[in-house]
């Protein structure tokens, strides 16, 4: 890394200031890929559980979709946390608020669209 010194005196110093709160970066290093294996096993288990719920009709239809969605969100969190090293950053982890906003907007787009497209005009 030839530019090591220049880079540390580089003009982008602000990003290095570690800010407090949940935006502070976390770094994990491990000698054995234990986390990865755990993540794989858990994701398989969650997928098969969701599949089992549907294939064997273990739940009434009304709550089934909710449970499946909850399982999906758990699994997404697993992927983010374990595989995607969500909180790794240099300096403030600015991608976290942006991702949170993305999630918020994404849920808003889906939820509101469904609500709007129900056409609940009551004149009759």
């Amino acid at each position: 890394m030839d530019g090591e010194e220049q880079i540390d005196t580089a003009p982008t110093g602000h990003g290095d200031e570690v800010e407090v709160g949940f935006l502070a970066p976390r770094i994990h290093a491990a000698p054995f890929p234990g986390m990865q294996i755990t993540g794989y096993v858990l994701s398989m288990a969650l997928t098969l559980a969701a599949f089992g719920l549907v294939a064997y009709h273990w739940l009434p239809l009304s709550s089934l979709v909710t449970v499946i969605l909850v399982l999906a969100f758990i699994q997404a969190a697993l992927q983010l946390g374990i595989f995607m090293h969500l909180r790794e950053a240099r300096g403030t982890a600015w991608h976290l608020p942006v991702l949170a906003l993305a999630l918020f907007v994404g849920l808003g787009i889906v939820g509101f669209s469904i609500w709007i497209m129900l056409f609940k005009s009551g004149v009759s």
């Binding site: 969701a50 294939a55 239809l61 089934l64 979709v65 499946i68 969605l69 999906a72 699994q75 997404a76």
Partner: peptide, 16 residues
């Protein structure tokens, strides 16, 4: 992650 939601929302909910 996207596929997990596809699998749940499209396929599993569609089969249910």
């Amino acid at each position: 992650i996207v596929w997990i939601f596809l699998f749940s929302v499209v396929y599993l909910s569609g089969m249910a």
